[in-house]
Computed example of a mutant assay.
Amino acid sequence: MSNYYDVLGVAREASAEEIKKAYRKMARKLHPDVNPGEDAAEQFKQVTRAYEVLSDPQKRQNYDTTGDEKGAPQGGFGGGGFGGFGDIFEQFFGGGAQQGPISRTQPGRDALITATISLQDAVQGVVYPLDIETAVTCQTCEGSCCQPGTHPETCTNCQGRGQVQRPVRSMLGQMMSVETCHICRGYGNTIPNPCHECSGQGRVRERVTKQLKVPAGVASGTRIHLGGQGEAGLGGGPNGDLYVELEVRRHNVFEREGNDLHATMSVPMTAATLGTDLKFDTFDGEQDITIDPGTQSGQTVRLKELGVPRLRGAGRGDLVIHLQVETPTKVTDEQRELIEQLAALRGEETAEGRLTDRGNVFTRLRDKFGQRG
């Protein structure tokens, strides 16, 4: 198999634009509708195949790594010692060739891409702009593959059938072999004036922007199906489908568990002791948080219906705020004196630790951290 870079006459480090220009230049010279020679037709197939591989980032990476665009060596019955049987059948019976001409119009491929959104966009929904490179119908020829003002012409070699018959001698005597017409390549017609913009393909690769409507409640791994927005087909064929897989970035405040959101808020020791009202910023705006007197670290405040909307169903999860009581690490002499007075009033001049029920401690720890990554 020829090296695809050598076929196009470009270096291995050539850019996508350089590969595209090289292909267009060679395709105009070798296209069967312009150069009907058998050698030119075979070269055109090689040039087209080389471009299909090197213009696709994934296929190009596989080709550079393994020497094959599929990422694995080819083999099996088609390429091993059993190929002789296939040659015989092809010679006598046309290799199972399609009866009648084939259509230039072929459907486009489906495409899968990844889009990264914020947690807030996942909670509230967003219209996300997708900037992608894909195959689109050629605007110059509108998918006809012909230069504007021209049309395909019936192939004079096969009379529009796409196949030709020729007598061959075999061990069984003289037989008629059916094979694909090498002039029109099985299409039944030729294009004397292929479109200069798309080199007779009916489509070109462009960078386009699509608007993706992301519903509220999606999560990492959610796939959104956009029917008919994949790659345009050859010869004005219908577009394939586009699948977008979402990835949600981690948030520096909130963490998602199912449809609930979790956050941690620090509370001054005095506020936790006396109780107070605090403000807390959420995706739905600022909310009032009531801290009850005697609040301990690890207690939670649950704000109903301020979590993640259910993607399939009504309602939302909750926002769970985990409270963390802050103990001052530095105090002034005056503050120390007041704390000592408080300790004396509470009879806590000499502190003694108290063992807490083990089950309750581990239950709280499990509830707080057990399912959080």
Rank of each mutant, 00 (worst) to 15 (best):
G236E: 09
G236Q: 07
G236L: 07
G236Y: 07
G237W: 06
G237R: 04
G237T: 05
G237I: 04
G237D: 07
P238K: 13
P238N: 11
P238W: 03
N239H: 15
N239L: 03
N239M: 06
N239G: 06
N239E: 07
G240A: 00
G240E: 01
G240V: 02
D241C: 01
D241L: 04
L242F: 10
L242Y: 09
Y243I: 14
Y243R: 11
Y243E: 11
Y243T: 15
V244C: 01
V244H: 00
V244W: 01
E245V: 03
L246M: 06
L246N: 02
L246E: 00
V248W: 01
V248D: 00
R249T: 12
R249F: 02
R250F: 06
R250D: 15
H251W: 04
N252D: 15
N252V: 02
V253I: 15
V253M: 07
V253Y: 06
F254R: 01
F254E: 00
E255M: 11
E255H: 12
R256F: 06
R256H: 09
E257Y: 10
E257W: 09
G258I: 09
G258Q: 11
G258T: 10
N259S: 07
N259M: 01
N259Q: 09
D260L: 05
D260S: 04
D260G: 04
D260T: 08
D260Q: 07
L261P: 09
L261R: 12
L261Y: 09
H262V: 03
H262P: 01
H262C: 01
A263F: 01
A263N: 01
A263Y: 02
A263S: 14
A263D: 02
M265N: 06
M265F: 08
M265H: 08
M265C: 03
S266T: 07
S266W: 03
V267R: 05
V267Y: 05
P268R: 00
P268I: 00
P268A: 00
P268M: 00
M269K: 12
M269H: 12
M269Y: 13
T270M: 13
A271N: 12
A271R: 07
A272T: 09
A272W: 10
A272F: 10
A272N: 12
T273Q: 14
L274Y: 07
L274R: 13
L274H: 09
G275N: 11
T276D: 07
D277R: 15
D277T: 15
D277E: 14
D277F: 11
L278W: 05
L278K: 13
K279G: 11
K279L: 14
K279V: 12
D281F: 05
D281S: 15
D281Q: 15
D281V: 10
F283G: 03
D284L: 06
D284A: 10
D284F: 10
G285K: 10
E286Y: 06
E286D: 13
Q287E: 13
D288L: 14
D288P: 06
D288G: 03
D288M: 08
